[in-house]
Measured scan of single mutants.
Amino acid sequence: RGFLEKAAVKKMAKAIMADPNKADEVYKKWADKGYTLTQMSNFLKSKTAGKYDRVYNGYVIHLD
């Protein structure tokens, strides 16, 4: 289950990176699912340092 969630989160993160207008909708879905910042950090780990920082930081702001 965790692997599928991670894959889904990364897919949506890539969608945000391609079209930032989708961010609020995606952040709301993640918040509704109760994803914590720790979970998001783990889901968005990448071999490329900083690749998903913008998405993660946007989610931090959304939760605030």
Rank of each mutant, 00 (worst) to 15 (best):
E25Q: 09
S41F: 13
H62I: 03
K47T: 13
D19E: 07
G50C: 08
L37E: 05
P20S: 07
A18P: 00
I61V: 11
K28D: 05
A13W: 03
F43G: 02
T36I: 02
I16F: 01
A23D: 03
V26C: 07
Y52E: 01
Y27H: 01
T38W: 11
P20D: 05
S46L: 05
N21M: 13
K28M: 08
K29Q: 14
N21H: 10
D64W: 11
N57R: 12
M17I: 12
V55R: 00
A15V: 11
R54H: 12
A13D: 00
G34Q: 05
E25Y: 09
R54L: 13
M17L: 15
T36W: 03
K6Q: 11
M12Q: 15
G50V: 04
K29M: 15
P20N: 06
M17A: 04
T36F: 03
L63E: 02
K6A: 14
I61A: 14
H62F: 15
K10S: 04
A15M: 13
K45I: 08
K10L: 14
R1A: 14
K29D: 11
A7C: 15
A31F: 08
F3S: 13
S41C: 14
R1M: 13
K29R: 12
K14T: 07
N42D: 13
E25T: 08
Y35L: 07
D53A: 08
V9S: 01
L44F: 04
A7Q: 13
K6G: 10
Y27M: 02
A31M: 09
K29H: 14
M12S: 06
K10D: 03
Y56I: 13
A49E: 12
W30Q: 00
Y56P: 00
K6Y: 11
E25L: 07
M40Y: 00
K51T: 07
A49K: 13
I61N: 12
E25P: 04
G2S: 11
A23C: 08
G50T: 07
Y35G: 01
G34I: 03
G58L: 03
A18Q: 11
N21R: 13
W30S: 00
K45P: 02
L44N: 00
A23R: 05
W30D: 00
E5V: 10
S46P: 05
K33R: 11
K6R: 15
L37K: 10
V9L: 04
G58D: 05
S41L: 10
L4Q: 13
G2A: 13
H62K: 04
N57Q: 14
K10N: 04
V55F: 03
K14C: 12
D64A: 15
K47D: 14
D19P: 01
D53M: 07
D32A: 14
I61R: 15
M12P: 01
W30R: 00
M17H: 04
K33Y: 10
G2W: 15
Y59I: 02
M17K: 04
A23F: 02
V26W: 03
S41M: 10
Y52Q: 02
R54M: 14
Y35S: 00
A8D: 07
K29V: 14
G50L: 05
L37F: 04
A8E: 14
T36E: 03
K47V: 07
A49C: 13
K22F: 07
F3N: 13
M17N: 05
M12R: 04
D19C: 14
Y52F: 09
A23L: 03
V60S: 08
Y27F: 08
N21T: 14
M17V: 06
A8C: 15
K14Q: 12
K45C: 15
A7L: 15
D32M: 12
V55N: 01
D32L: 12
P20F: 07
N57D: 14
G34C: 08
E5D: 09
D64G: 15
A49M: 11
A49Y: 09
T38N: 10
N57S: 09
W30P: 00
K6D: 06
I61W: 09
K22V: 13
K10W: 07
A31I: 05
V60K: 14
K33L: 14
L4F: 13
P20I: 08
E25M: 11
S46C: 12
V55K: 01
L63R: 03
V9F: 03
T38G: 10
Q39N: 05
N42A: 13
G58A: 04
D53Y: 06
S41Q: 14
M40Q: 01
W30I: 00
K22N: 07
L37G: 04
M12L: 09
A31G: 04
D19T: 04
M40C: 03
G50N: 09
P20M: 06
M17G: 02
S46T: 08
A31N: 06
L37W: 03
K29F: 13
Y56F: 13
A8R: 14
M17Y: 04
G50F: 06
M40G: 01
N21P: 05
K51G: 05
I61F: 08
P20T: 05
W30G: 00
L37R: 07
Y35F: 06
K11L: 11
F43Q: 02
N57K: 11
L4C: 15
L63D: 02
P20R: 05
Y56R: 02
G2Q: 13
K22L: 14
M40V: 11
Y35N: 00
D64S: 15
D19W: 06
L4I: 10
K51W: 08
F3T: 10
W30N: 00
A23P: 01
P20L: 06
K11C: 15
A49I: 11
A18T: 09
N57T: 09
N57F: 13
N21E: 11
G2M: 11
F3Y: 14
M12G: 07
R54K: 14
K6E: 08
V60M: 12
F43K: 02
I61Y: 09
K28C: 08
D64C: 15
G50A: 05
A15L: 13
M12D: 15
L37A: 09
N42H: 12
D53L: 07
F3G: 13
K47H: 09
K28P: 03
D64Q: 15
S41N: 09
D53F: 06
K14N: 13
K29A: 14
I16W: 01
I16C: 05
A49W: 07
L37N: 04
M17E: 04
A8P: 03
V55G: 01
K14W: 09
K45L: 10
V9M: 03
E5G: 09
K33I: 12
N42T: 09
A23V: 03
K6P: 05
D32S: 11
K11P: 02
K45V: 08
K29S: 13
A8W: 14
A49V: 12
V9C: 05
Q39P: 01
V9P: 01
Y52L: 03
Y59M: 01
H62S: 05
M17Q: 05
A7S: 10
R54V: 14
V26G: 03
L44A: 00
G34A: 05
A18L: 11
D64E: 15
N21A: 12
Y52G: 02
N57G: 07
K14G: 07
R1W: 05
N21G: 10
K51P: 05
K51N: 05
R54F: 10
K47Q: 09
K28W: 04
N57L: 13
K22C: 15
K14S: 09
A49F: 09
K6N: 07
S41E: 10
M12K: 04
F43A: 05
T38V: 12
G34W: 03
K10H: 06
K28Y: 04
K14R: 14
K51D: 05
A13C: 05
V9N: 02
M40N: 00
T48P: 15
L63K: 03
I16G: 01
T38S: 11
D53H: 05
V26K: 02
I61L: 13
D32T: 10
N42E: 13
K29G: 08
N42S: 10
A7P: 04
A49H: 11
K10F: 06
Y35W: 05
L37I: 09
A8K: 14
Y52M: 04
F3I: 10
K6H: 10
G58M: 04
D53R: 07
S46V: 07
K22W: 05
T38Y: 10
P20E: 07
V55M: 02
E25S: 09
D64L: 15
Y27S: 01
F3M: 10
L37C: 07
D53E: 09
V26F: 05
G58S: 03
L37M: 06
H62V: 04
A13N: 01
A15S: 10
N42L: 11
K28R: 13
K11Y: 08
D53N: 06
K10M: 11
A23T: 04
N57Y: 14
L37T: 08
V60G: 07
P20Q: 08
D32E: 14
V26Y: 08
A49D: 12
K22R: 10
N21Y: 09
Y35T: 01
F3L: 10
K22M: 14
L37Q: 06
K47M: 07
R54N: 13
K29N: 10
L4M: 11
K29T: 13
R54I: 11
G2R: 13
W30H: 00
S46M: 05
D24H: 11
I16K: 00
A31T: 06
F43S: 02
K47L: 05
T48K: 11
W30E: 00
N42P: 01
I16N: 01
H62T: 03
